[in-house]
Amino acid sequence: MTRCLALLLLALACSGCAPVRPWERDALARPDMAWDPDPLGAQLGKHIQFSKEGSLDGGPGGGGGCGCN
């Protein structure tokens, strides 16, 4: 785990040296590169996991409701 974190930090640091320019971001701007390309699908998935599993979801926000059953 520590090694993964170190690699991630290294990757972040390296990328900081050579920023990607706006005109090079066509791939990053694609809808299928969004964190949640399907907002409704992601929202329903989160609610089902909240109702049926024991963990807290990741990321911002949270749905309402009991999820008791």
Partner: peptide, 22 residues
Amino acid sequence: VYLAASQVLGSATIVQTSVKYQ
């Protein structure tokens, strides 16, 4: 409470890491 950092790693690569406390 939620904290996140995202970083463009290349012209076709991006990563995000976030911590949420409830």
